[in-house]
């Protein structure tokens, strides 16, 4: 059984249809890249998977481990192992990052029937993971993402991902805003999580990220549907030729 199966997904936002008949199947152990022009619906796909309010699936299914998730709350999806690294992580003043992380981790464990982490247990895990991602301890005491630079916010998303150990990681332009060194650190963080039990969907505009996180499959999303699927060489082709031909194809199809 595939880990993720999206069938004929139609999504509208504020009455406007953004995704129209999207299909995507991701198996355990695989890394899929999704590329596509601005406004083609990549973040919309990520958001509807995570359960963002206001994103209405008018048709189709999203199956995680064979179970429909569209009818469930975002926190239930997270507990089932879905994780979205946001394109634009939000700032939450007044909620210390460390409190946020522990609350999230224990809430998921509780929902899965696992024992909650004690403070020292949690601290130990956090120190390990934060250390590898070169995230400063002082930053963790601040409000979630408050005063973080763009790159630090992205790194914080990967920190959360590494702590929560999801089954399916969806990364929405995690590379944007990262400098060359940070890109390497973050990619290594993501690669450490690659495992036969886990899958990843990596949304990006740039081949550069995909040379660090090498995908098994590359998809082109245009005007709300997948218009082409290929191997990792497809990313190189896109880098050379751009999206012009796909936009025409999508226009013809819709």
């Amino acid at each position: 059984m595939p880990l993720l199966e999206i069938k004929n997904l139609h999504v509208s936002v504020e009455g406007r249809q953004i995704l129209n008949g999207l299909d995507l199947t991701v198996n355990k152990g695989e890394v899929h890249a999704i590329m596509g022009p601005n406004g083609s619906g990549k973040s919309t796909l990520a958001h509807v998977m995570a359960g963002k309010p206001g994103y209405e699936a008018t048709q189709g299914q999203i199956l995680l481990d064979g179970e429909e998730v569209l009818t469930t709350q975002p926190d239930e999806r997270a507990a089932k192992g879905l994780f979205l690294a946001f394109q634009y992580p939000m700032e939450i003043p007044g909620v210390a990052t460390i409190t946020f992380l522990r609350t999230a981790m224990n809430a998921q464990r509780k929902k899965r029937g696992q024992p909650e982490f004690t403070v020292p247990e949690f601290q130990k895990r956090l120190n390990e993971v934060a250390g590898k991602l070169e995230i400063d301890r002082e930053m963790l005491r601040r409000g979630v993402n408050v005063g973080f630079s763009g790159g630090e916010k992205k790194r914080n998303e990967i920190l959360q991902m590494a702590l929560l150990e999801p089954k399916l990681c969806v990364l929405d332009e995690t590379d944007s805003g990262l400098d060359i060194d940070a890109l390497k650190i973050v990619s290594e963080g993501v690669n450490r999580l690659r495992s036969p039990e886990r899958a990843m969907v990596v949304i990006t505009h740039y081949q550069r990220l995909l040379s660090h996180i090498v995908p098994d499959v590359v998809h082109v999303l245009s005007r709300g549907r997948i218009v082409r699927t290929g191997g990792k060489e497809l990313a190189l082709e896109l880098e050379a030729k751009g999206y012009a031909q796909y936009q025409d194809e999508a226009a013809l199809a819709s």
Partner: peptide, 17 residues
């Protein structure tokens, strides 16, 4: 939503905020 997307139930997310 951001809090809930990390597995925090709605009432707990509201409490944190």
């Amino acid at each position: 939503f951001y809090l809930m997307a990390r597995g925090i139930p709605e009432s707990e997310a509201e409490s944190l905020l």
